[in-house]
Design a protein around this nucleic acid. Sequence first.
DNA 1: TTAGGGCCTCCAGTCACTGGAAGGTCAATC
DNA 2: GATTGACCTTCCAGTGACTGGAGGCCCTAA
Lengths: 139, 139
Amino acid sequence: MNIGTASEQSRLPVKTIRYYEDIGLVRPLRSENGYRDFSDANLQTLKFLQRARSLGFSIEECRELLSLYEDGNRASADVKAITQSKIVEIDRKIDELKSLKKVLTTLSDACHGDSRPTCPIIDDLAGMGEPDRDMRGRS
Amino acid sequence: MNIGTASEQSRLPVKTIRYYEDIGLVRPLRSENGYRDFSDANLQTLKFLQRARSLGFSIEECRELLSLYEDGNRASADVKAITQSKIVEIDRKIDELKSLKKVLTTLSDACHGDSRPTCPIIDDLAGMGEPDRDMRGRS
DNA sequence: TTAGGGCCTCCAGTCACTGGAAGGTCAATC
DNA sequence: GATTGACCTTCCAGTGACTGGAGGCCCTAA
């Protein structure tokens, strides 16, 4: 099938599919006219990628999962480990966002929000509030 | 002061400060030897940026906040509006992450996680579970 | 004088695409 | 047969917010 059909079936944008070919995640054959020709197996791969990406796996994690997917002898423990580290990561992100929200909410609540120039939010950003967080040396 | 000192005081990496100059967020003078020379006002700006970025404001939002910061006549309502839309955005992200976590947890719980090749996670990714989410047309 | 650390610019890479230009192919219609 | 328009191709550049590295100048201290 052509890329347009593969896009519909996999629910991935055409550009993304080309990109996935570029980085070696899928290897469709070519028709005589130069068009990509996706087999059913290729389509399966694309669907797999669509689902894994939508679940927050990075491209490199997808590559790893794909090779496990294609390896009939893989251990389910390997897949479970990747999934669980993803869950830990998500928890960390949620916590970060929550504490971020807390600060912003406090600031927003303290701001009268009218036409006067006095603004506790700006004052805080200008360093008149809590001490700064250190941003150096982040990975 | 030199960039190294400014980095320490603002808790921003040296490279980041140079980048902020590149994109016009801060405009230090230059010493005769070509070194950047940061004034106290420049340092205030850097600290402001550090704090605003750590609170999740984008560079463009920082630019906007900075101009409000520098405008003695701004209305606090403007700042509050930006802050509140940020809070809404954070809530949306938290919800997304939560539902992501739910799916992954369900999958992980269903996986026996041993050396056998049978793996419900892989099966789900391969499309043997729920229908795919549509990824086309995302902004 | 030499070593080191700090500073400079410029270029390239990150991640995962996305947009656009320029052009070939195909099927249907006039 | 010509034309239209959808679909396909490649290639290049841009996104956001930095980060890393090369190559080289400047400054201070031993």
